[in-house]
């Protein structure tokens, strides 16, 4: 319930036009990875905290808040098939409603899977809390 924090690297973000889908997220991750490689910028080291409230990311060097995404804004999460150390989620931007796909590089495939499973657990707990509240 209190959430779990993972040390990941934020590779980038791209806009998508659907809230979910394997092909869609694979294409989005491909775009993000290509852009990151082209820019040769080092991925930003972040503390990635998952809880039934949502996902909070902090910049690990400055401790600055980067993203605070409510669990109700997140539609989908996945470990990319091709880049299997990459975890990605799709969320709706609270201000303009656009759908964003954010991708994170994990140290190992196992870590990417652990992040995805933890986010999935947060989805389930949030759903149970929502049903109780309804």
């Amino acid at each position: 319930l209190e959430g779990m924090t993972f040390n990941l690297s934020h590779i980038g973000m791209t806009l998508v036009d659907q809230p979910k889908g394997e092909e869609l997220s694979a294409a989005a991750v491909k775009r993000i990875v290509a852009t990151a490689k082209a820019s040769r910028k080092k991925p930003q080291k972040v503390a990635f905290k998952v809880s039934p409230q949502g996902i909070v990311t902090l910049d690990r060097s400055t401790n600055k808040l980067l993203e605070n995404v409510s669990i109700y804004r997140i539609s989908y999460c996945t470990v990319d098939k091709l880049h299997d150390k990459v975890f990605a989620y799709i969320a709706q931007n609270t201000f303009n409603g656009t759908l964003e796909c954010h991708a994170y590089l994990c140290s190992k495939r196992k870590v990417a899977q652990a992040v995805a499973l933890t986010v999935a657990q947060a989805f389930t707990v949030a759903f149970e809390l929502w049903q109780v509240a309804k």
């Binding site: 694979a26 804004r73 995805a116 989805f123």
Partner: peptide, 18 residues
Amino acid sequence: NSNTIHFHNPVYQKTTED
């Protein structure tokens, strides 16, 4: 085969009547 790991969020866009 889709051995990718992916999860849909059942509370996506559910409003919180708080």
